[in-house]
């Protein structure tokens, strides 16, 4: 799955640590999701979408 997490985070001027704290996950988790090494569960994907005020499909797309 591809995602726009890094771009969305950068647009808000957040570091990976900032985003991790907002999502209540580890910085390593944010890094793994951003780099496509880990696809989050549906509950975490919803939390990410809620945080950015977007739909899940606007952040995550099909593809490698």
């Amino acid at each position: 799955m591809k995602n726009r997490l890094k771009v969305l985070r950068a647009e808000r001027g957040w570091s990976q640590q900032d985003l991790a704290e907002r999502l209540e996950v580890s910085r390593q988790s944010v890094n793994a999701i951003e780099t496509g090494r880990y696809d989050p569960s549906l509950p975490l994907a919803f939390r990410i979408a809620d945080l950015f005020g977007m739909a899940i499909e606007d952040i995550f797309q099909r593809g490698e």
């Binding site: 209540e24 580890s26 390593q28 988790s29 880990y38």
Partner: peptide, 8 residues
């Protein structure tokens, strides 16, 4: 463990 990535 609340962090699903670390748990995985």
């Amino acid at each position: 463990e609340q962090d699903e990535y670390l748990r995985m």
